[in-house]
Amino acid sequence: MKRLLILGMGHVGSAVAQAARQQGYSVVGTTTTPDKVEHLSTLADEVVVLRGEDSAAVAATAAGCDAIVATVAPRVAKARTPEERETEYRTVLERSLFSASQAASRVIFLSSFSVYGDGGEGGDSISEQTPTANHQEPSSKYYQAAEAHTLSVAEGCVLRLPDIHGAPGDMSFTDRVKMARELFGGKAVFSADAPLYTIHFDDVVRAVMHALEHNLTGVYNVCDNEHLPASNQQVFDAICDRENWPRLEFLGQIKAPKRRISADRIYATGYRTLQPDPNAALLAGVGAAL
Rank of each mutant, 00 (worst) to 15 (best):
I254K: 14
Q102R: 12
P257Y: 14
S55K: 12
D202L: 06
T87A: 04
R206D: 09
V189M: 11
P74E: 08
E38F: 07
E213Y: 01
L161Y: 06
I164M: 12
V49I: 04
L159F: 04
E84G: 07
C223H: 12
D241I: 05
I199F: 08
S172L: 03
V219I: 14
P229C: 08
S231Q: 14
R90H: 14
A154N: 15
K187S: 12
R160A: 03
A230T: 00
T81P: 10
H135A: 13
D175R: 03
S125L: 05
R51Q: 15
G169H: 09
D118G: 05
L4V: 02
R260Y: 11
R51M: 15
A20N: 13
A154S: 15
V107D: 05
E46T: 12
S41D: 07
L4C: 03
I164P: 06
G8W: 14
S127R: 15
K78L: 13
Q253R: 13
S111A: 06
D175G: 01
K2Q: 15
D264F: 10
A67C: 06
G13T: 13
E84F: 03
D241F: 10
E121T: 15
C65P: 03
L43W: 02
N134C: 09
C157L: 05
V28A: 02
E88M: 02
A19H: 11
T198Y: 06
I199L: 13
H214F: 12
S125N: 10
A180Y: 12
F201M: 01
F250A: 07
S112F: 05
A67L: 02
A20E: 12
G123I: 09
V153I: 08
D193Q: 15
A188V: 13
A104H: 11
G186E: 09
G10Q: 13
G270W: 14
T132S: 13
S96C: 04
A20S: 15
G186H: 11
P74C: 05
S96K: 10
P82Q: 12
T150C: 14
E182P: 00
K36N: 09
K187G: 06
A100I: 01
A238G: 03
S101L: 09
G186C: 09
R80Y: 06
I126R: 08
S111C: 03
G120Q: 12
Y89N: 01
K78F: 12
V27N: 02
A146I: 06
K36D: 05
R51L: 13
A104N: 15
L151M: 05
S105C: 00
V27D: 01
A280N: 08
I6E: 03
G52M: 02
C223K: 10
M1Q: 04
S101K: 06
E38P: 01
V58G: 02
G122N: 13
D170C: 01
V205C: 01
G24P: 02
G119L: 14
E38R: 15
F201H: 15
T61Y: 11
A15R: 04
Y89Q: 00
M179N: 14
S139T: 08
S140D: 02
L283E: 08
E83Q: 03
L228E: 11
